[in-house]
Design a protein around this nucleic acid. Structure first.
Lengths: 337, 337
DNA sequence: GAATGGCACTCCCGCGCAGTGAGTGCTAAC
DNA sequence: GTTAGCACTCACTGCGCGGGAGTGCCATTC
């Protein structure tokens, strides 16, 4: 049904359209690519490709543009991830090397990704739910207030102010700190609950209410607070490609919603580069945009995702290469932190 | 030179133009506002106002639009800050009430401000340089690594990983922690240096290198790290008013630069609402936007600023009211934290 | 039977053109 | 100082008209 040449034609159409953003016709195609056949032949092939839904005409007597289905085929079977240039690799390394803390790493990564792909970049903070506790610290603020600082093995730090019904003795606080760390350090966040289940019992009755509040807050932080932070950058690139500008507002709106961003990046823990094209996208108002994302993490497992959002007519091979590269470097970096 | 009526005409022009975004003519003016004179008279007044540079014509035979100078006069002398509706006040209170930590407060504030003004909102984190140290915590991670957590009286928390040449004994670390807090707790950030000047001497020679690194990092954090975080929200609102869309990209770019945002908000510590109109703006590419900002802080002094960025043809009275209100509530909130 | 050359057809796009209407500036009268 | 009248300007709209890129179809070639 789709022989070699028809696939070559589709590939050529995608490549040309990505470059020019204009419908591509049969004549232009044979001129630019050495397909070895005449325009008329290409026209026949194009008719078939259109019947199958891979390309479409904006109007009669215009060239063809790829459909979402066409891009899908292109990404899955017709393209190869384009290797990065040495300059780009160096740029990635040097850009990420100077980071001083996790916040800094995240900020630099988004910038880098946005710059490399010239698109909108998203980077999700290392997820709390798949990481482990490294340390819990309790700091008295005023009598009835404690600051709880929770440090994850990914370098992520969560802080929370705790209002306690009765102030702790200095000694009691030290005891709680020690026991708390013994109970949860090294545990997966999902397993924190079991660790601290019987902790309150070891404290004197008058201390228990306050201990209870601390434990409850800790649980909240590791369990309920599943909402993951996502940083984004390069929004200025939106203005470049959404030429029509009509579709801009919904996209900007979507990018402001953390929940939406999460759905865009996808929850799947797959390490590989994932491409979501146009309508495949779960978010309304973003049917003209594609998302290229990948998981990253300190070890083989994925702890979070990153990616870029761009027009469906993006340069998939290059974009996929950049996303994959940044994800890998970021993984390395976390391993050494 | 500018009598009462001419000022009234200018006010009417600004109000109409803000509402319709279209050049306003003499006829339309007398129709909508009861000025008590004929269009011809208004035309004479308009000619004077144009000579003085308060209004301009996009082209001959079109209505007038206010110039930056016109808006300036309007803001300074012709408008009154419009009081908020009770519903808006309630919205502010309930919106900010549920915040759990400083990050949350900041995020909610931007959203709130963006929603109230329907523009792009900026909120600067409470500045480190004008606040004081509440507590410094040191947490061992691995042998050669410490996590330093610095808590400011504004609730802001900075963390930093410190690489130390030689691991600390548990006892030594506790000693350092205690002495460090005695030396700096309650001090202004700007005065931390004096507090820790002779601290290293109190430690055994073999501990000094590590102590030195910790102190150096602390200094870096409070002094060098002047870069202030700014959160922004409501960028989708840009798409609404920058109809021409030509000016959109530079604005989006500017909003991505922290340094630029700082300059936009202004460094001045004034509590009052400040308005910067069009070309008065120090940032190139944003000459079609105005900034309405205000300082906020837990006490009479200002610790940080917040504001909104919008088109020069914005509703200044309402915007100024919203900005002022959010700044005040935020101040209250910090006081109670 | 696939590939090709030729040809009529479609339809977007840019251009020039007149008509419309909102708005202005000027002048003379009140 | 204010007003009515009037000629003038100029953006905006709709219309008609090639030009041109591209297509689909058909007859022909290999």
């Amino acid at each position: 049904m789709l022989d070699e040449r028809k696939l070559a034609v589709l590939r050529a159409i995608v490549e040309d359209y990505v470059r020019t953003h204009e419908p591509v016709g049969s004549k232009a195609l044979v001129d630019r690519h050495s397909l070895g056949v005449s325009p008329a032949t290409i026209r026949n092939d194009m008719a078939v490709l259109e019947d199958e839904g891979f390309i479409a005409q904006p109007h009669t007597s215009a060239g063809r543009i790829p459909t979402d289905k066409g891009y899908r085929l292109f990404v899955d079977r017709l393209s190869q991830v384009k290797p990065l240039s040495p300059a780009e690799r160096r740029a990635i390394e040097s850009f990420l090397a100077g980071a001083v803390d996790l916040d800094d790493v995240m900020t630099r990564s988004v910038r880098l990704l946005a710059q490399l792909t010239r698109q909108v970049a998203l980077v999700q903070y290392p997820s709390l739910s798949t990481s482990s506790v490294r340390h819990v610290e309790l700091v008295p603020l005023t009598g009835h207030r404690l600051l709880m600082v929770l440090i994850a093995d990914t370098g992520r730090v969560e802080q929370r102010v705790v209002e306690i019904p009765a102030p702790f003795e200095e000694e009691a606080l030290a005891r709680l700190r020690t026991q708390l760390n013994e109970a949860v350090a090294g545990r997966r966040f999902t397993a924190v609950a079991e660790g601290i289940a019987d902790l309150a019992e070891r404290f004197a009755p008058h201390e228990r209410p306050s201990v209870g509040v601390v434990l409850a807050t800790l649980l909240e932080t590791v369990v309920e607070r599943h909402e993951e932070r996502i940083v984004l950058g390069g929004t200025a690139n939106l203005a470049r490609y959404l030429d029509g500008f009509a579709g801009l507002q919904p996209v900007l709106e979507a990018l402001e919603e953390q929940m939406v961003l999460l759905r865009l990046l996808g929850q799947t823990g797959a390490d590989a580069v994932t491409v979501t094209i146009g309508h495949e996208n779960p978010v309304a108002g973003m049917s003209a945009t594609s998302v290229v994302s990948a998981g990253y993490g300190p070890s083989r497992g994925t702890v979070a995702r990153l990616g870029v959002v761009g027009p469906t007519h993006m340069d998939y091979p290059s974009t996929m290469a950049s996303v994959r590269a940044v994800a890998r470097y970021l993984g390395h970096l976390l391993r050494n932190e």
